[in-house]
């Protein structure tokens, strides 16, 4: 059993106090069924977190190294207790798994090789909508023989999501702006996070429903109420420097902006609730400022 302290700091900061008992209850659910896989290896940041949430004790034997990095992983502390893999076929084969979980965008050659070696591989699609999150949890639960646990995670996620849903007639208009001027449209997980928090996405106005490159000029002409930028990685890059361009500061001009914490935005897991919470806070601040 994992103690409550394994939760990342931000979980207790952003979410309500109900969050921690819920997760701990989820993590202590029943052990795996007799015919369920006993040595599961996950090799993708997002499938790692689904597997860590759903797996029974001792069932999951390794997660990918990315999951131990608090920048991108909402469960870095938990992941650090597992042996870490680097997504190489060789090291994963030597772990003698009876199930490997990978993302559909995981390196094809590696997945094919594991397949040829006779190891069952479960490929999970990335989540494009909030609804996909429930489906992914259920799918992972089935594969791991943890249906009941997965269903309780889903039920709790949906309750919490329902509590957060609050839409006003006039939503503030927000722009997501990451490295290289990339933005996420309405038909993406990030877009759904925004709309669940009651913010309109200017990417849709620019005709980028799926997301894409939003030229700086077009962003400025859209004149969003708030600009939400990514958090830069260590080291410098021109790609990220665009979010420090003086016009972004001018667009914000006294109004609050926000940063996307990768760990809450990237993966389709219940942790997106933290992102929605942060965005709902931003919306309240914006609306208070307008009054």
């Amino acid at each position: 059993m994992l103690p409550a302290g394994v939760l990342p700091m931000s979980a207790s900061m952003h979410a309500s106090s109900l969050w921690i008992p819920w997760l701990v209850a989820a993590l202590t659910a029943a052990p795996a069924l007799a015919d369920a896989p006993r040595r599961v290896v996950s090799m993708n940041l997002c499938t790692d977190q689904l597997a860590m949430l759903v797996a029974g004790e001792g069932q999951l034997i390794s997660v990918s190294a990315l999951s131990a990095d608090p920048r991108g992983s909402a469960m870095a502390d938990v992941a650090a207790r597992y042996p870490l893999n680097h997504g190489r076929a060789e090291e994963i084969y030597l772990m003698q798994p009876d199930l490997v979980i990978a993302g559909t965008f995981t390196r094809r050659a590696t997945v094919d090789m594991l397949d040829r070696l006779g190891i069952p591989v479960l490929l999970l699609e990335p989540a494009y909508t909030l609804d996909d999150i429930a489906a992914l949890l259920i799918q992972t639960g089935k594969a791991l023989g943890q249906e009941a646990k997965a269903e309780s995670l889903v039920a709790d996620f949906q309750t919490r999501l329902g509590l957060l849903n609050s839409k006003d007639a006039a939503n503030p208009r927000a722009a997501l702006y990451s490295a290289n001027g990339y933005t996420s449209g309405d038909r993406t997980l990030a877009g759904e996070i925004l709309s669940a928090a009651g913010l309109d996405n200017v990417a849709a106005e620019a005709g980028l429903a799926d997301g894409g490159f939003l030229p700086l000029e077009v962003l400025v002409m859209a004149a969003p109420d708030t600009v939400i930028t990514g958090v830069p990685y260590a080291g410098e890059s021109r790609a990220e420097a665009v979010t420090d361009h003086p016009v972004i500061a001018a667009l914000r001009d006294g109004r609050p902006g926000a940063r996307m914490m990768d760990r809450d935005w990237v993966c389709g897991t219940p942790f997106v609730l933290q992102a929605i919470n942060a965005m709902a806070d931003l919306r309240h601040t914006l609306q208070d400022g307008q009054r």
């Binding site: 830069p232 890059s237 790609a239 990220e240 665009v242 361009h245």
Partner: peptide
């Protein structure tokens, strides 16, 4: 560089660009 975007910028340094420059 620890930054995952940095390696993609080799082409900028070798070919040059004026996009998104500021005053």
């Amino acid at each position: 560089s620890p930054n995952p975007f940095a390696a993609n910028e080799i082409v900028f340094w070798m070919m040059g660009s004026l996009s998104d420059r500021s005053m």
